[in-house]
């Protein structure tokens, strides 16, 4: 048997998975890095992106490309607004206490799931891809749309990276992340930075959700897996480390793709989970994270 086509296919599938995972994991990592809280409702923001994307795209059924473009712009914006409301209404009120935030966001995730279930029902919803393009490899054809996902994710992550390093807002975020009180002493409105970071994290998950619906489907329970896998990526990559998150997403996405193609998706999840356990035991700061330097 010739292995090359299988490897290529698995690599492509892994790359697509890595891209979506990278967006969603970066959102989780950004929120943890700056705000020091774990958002358990992160997967629900992903799901809302997907379901919202479907709802918006189905408003213009005759123009899949237009519908998708609208979905990609509007759904994340709505999710971002919801995240700001959750930050102001819940997280700020409990003072960003780490334990209380976990409990509160567990509650939030159930509320979001149930509201979506009551509004859109339990069915999986499909969205038409914005375009059909079959990329011909010697052995098989591959969806051009899936490669489009990879490109969008790469552009977004690049923009996020440059924004964090070069923009005034990025500097504010990094200063707040490092020392909240001193940031305040230098005029940085940390309350608004927190809201903004929480919204950005949620929007990254929502974009991932919109991108994935044309390839998968939208469903009110679909947030579970991305949440778990984002945790895996963030822990392996090092909490709050953006380069680590990117590297870990690619590593885990590719290994997941390879194992899913050659063995089974279940085995792939088992291996990822084992990797987390090993990392937590032997390198708790993550494979790419640096040891805690703050005293």
């Amino acid at each position: 048997m010739d292995l090359a086509p299988y490897l290529l296919l698995a690599g492509l599938e892994g790359l697509v998975e890595a891209s979506v995972l990278m967006l969603s994991a970066l959102g989780l990592s950004l929120v943890f890095g700056v705000m020091r809280v774990v958002n358990v409702a992160h997967g629900e923001f992903y799901m809302l992106g997907a379901v919202g994307g479907w709802a918006i795209a189905s408003l213009v059924p005759d123009h899949p490309a237009l519908g998708f473009a609208l979905a990609l712009l509007i759904a994340p914006a709505l999710v971002g607004a919801l995240a700001i409301a959750a930050d102001r209404g819940i997280l700020r009120r409990i003072g960003y206490d780490p334990e209380a935030t976990i409990v509160a966001t567990i509650g939030l995730s159930y509320i979001i799931q149930q509201v979506v279930l009551m509004t859109f029902g339990p069915d999986a919803r499909a969205v038409e891809p914005p375009f059909y393009l079959n990329i011909r490899f010697p052995w098989f054809g591959y969806s051009g749309y899936k490669l489009f996902i990879v490109a969008v994710a790469a552009v977004l992550v690049g923009a996020l990276w440059v924004g964090l390093r070069r923009s005034r807002l990025g500097l504010m975020m990094r200063a707040t992340q490092f020392d909240r009180e001193t940031a305040q002493n230098f005029g940085i409105p940390v309350g608004r930075v927190y809201s903004g970071v929480f919204a950005m994290g949620a929007m990254l998950a929502a974009v991932a959700g919109v991108l994935i619906v044309p390839a998968n489907q939208a469903h009110y329970l679909m947030g579970h897996d991305p949440l778990l896998m984002s945790f895996v990526v963030v822990i392996v990559g090092g909490l709050g480390s953006i380069p680590g998150t990117i590297a870990a997403a690619v590593l885990i996405g590719l290994s997941d793709g390879l194992m899913s193609v050659f063995f089974s998706p279940t085995l792939a999840k088992i291996v990822s989970t084992l990797l987390v356990a090993l990392v937590l035991v032997f390198r708790p700061q993550g494979l790419f994270g640096k040891a805690e330097t703050r005293a």
């Binding site: 005034r168 500097l171 504010m172 990094r174 200063a175 490092f178 020392d179 009180e181 001193t182 940031a183 002493n185 230098f186 005029g187 940085i188 330097t293």
Partner: peptide, 26 residues
């Protein structure tokens, strides 16, 4: 302006970035 006890620099950031944070205030 505040020069806090123990300096409280943004130690992960560069010297230029620390100064920029000061410049951004007003």
């Amino acid at each position: 302006a505040h020069v806090p006890q123990g300096r409280r620099l943004f130690s992960d950031l560069t010297v230029a970035e620390n100064l920029q944070i000061g410049l951004n205030v007003r």
